[in-house]
Design a protein around this nucleic acid. Structure first.
Lengths: 201, 201
DNA sequence: TGTTGCTATGTATAGAATGACATATGTTAC
DNA sequence: GTAACATATGTCATTCTATACATAGCAACA
């Protein structure tokens, strides 16, 4: 029973609601895609593997105005597998951050171009923050009851969306700080170097 | 001239100093590994590919008390390739965060076990923050002159290390927030749900 | 009738990453 | 002597990922 990271993503979505592979692919674009992206060519084979191991089942559902679909449902065994994974230490620890990677070689770059790149990236994170904040607000407005209990899907979605907001703000804050340093006159002052607003420890 | 992310990592390290594959593998564990991890079985073939494309060169260096090594050096063409990549929009956009992924299914988990997992993870980030802060402090203490100019390797290392601190604090802050919610008595109050200390926008 | 577009499910292929396997030199400690 | 350990470089098998290719139903519109 060797489940991959993508496998757990799919189990997590199916734990909330039964879905088709196509639906799962959509979910792995917008809401969940901020944390784990994948496209349909990975999802369909992965679903087949999960079914082989008895973690999901599917049922063909005919539709009137659309092609038929395979609706996948989590099995009790799939649910247990997911529950176990949740509280384990991180299984796939490889962290990758291309932006910080570029930062590490920033001393070679054209100052003006680099500042522009960072400001563009800050803007992307502003947009991402807005999307995540929308999820937070929707849950606060329309599911305030469910949010008071930690065993609801809404609660889990809420803390995940807050993480999205938090990560986007951190990234944006850092991008703008570096952009300002690149655009400032040298020599930089100590105050400028210390001017990164840090999240509270 | 199709350079992979790992390729750029290696070019970025070699731009600072010529190194052997073994040295690069060490660097991709501790300092740079926080942003891009890799092991030697990827590095050696990658170096060969970079050399084929004329971005790096190597020279065999005999050592008295150790086995001989291949010291790789960045070529002018490699330097240009790196410089170009730096200011491009992100080329490898896939973002993956296993922790937020787990959070999304947290409603299924055992509260006590989940809180323990999150506190363990917070502790890991505290340690990571300390390591990154050490780099920041070292640079501040021993390279304050170089930090005033943005075209020094020290400046780039400084902003990258600050990012490490920033990311670790954000992660720790969020983990402890969720752990507190899981350990609190239900129903949760609105104040508790809003109590995540956010990095400034 | 044809074209565009969304739904829906797959395969093929090439590249990348992981972990295991494999080898060799030299130092230090027992 | 030999065992453990750090340095040093590589390969191999398997798995994972990304991109493109491929097919098909149905609706809306021109």
């Amino acid at each position: 029973m060797n489940v991959t990271a993508l496998g757990y993503v799919l189990l997590g979505l199916l734990a909330r609601e039964s879905r088709s592979g196509y639906d799962l692919a959509q979910n792995l674009r917008r809401p969940v895609g901020f944390f784990w992206a994948a496209n349909h060519s990975q999802i369909y084979p992965q679903l087949a593997r999960l079914e082989e191991e008895g973690l999901v089942e599917h049922e063909v559902v005919d539709q009137r105005d659309r092609p038929a679909k395979k609706v996948y449902t989590l099995t009790p065994r799939g649910r247990e597998t997911l529950r176990t994974w949740l509280v384990e230490p991180l299984t796939f620890p490889t962290y990758r951050d291309e932006l910080t990677l570029k930062a590490y070689s920033l001393w070679l770059a054209d100052r003006v171009e680099a500042a522009r790149m960072l400001r563009e990236h800050a803007e992307e994170h502003r947009a991402r923050e807005a999307v995540c904040q929308t999820y937070v607000d929707d849950l606060t407005d329309h599911a305030s009851e469910a949010l008071t209990r930690v065993d609801t899907p809404e609660f889990a979605a809420y803390v995940a969306a807050q993480r999205g907001v938090s990560i986007a703000r951190e990234a944006r804050s850092w991008c703008l700080w570096v952009a300002r340093l690149l655009e400032a006159q040298t020599p930089l002052t100590e105050a400028q170097l210390r001017s990164l607003p840090m999240p509270p420890s």
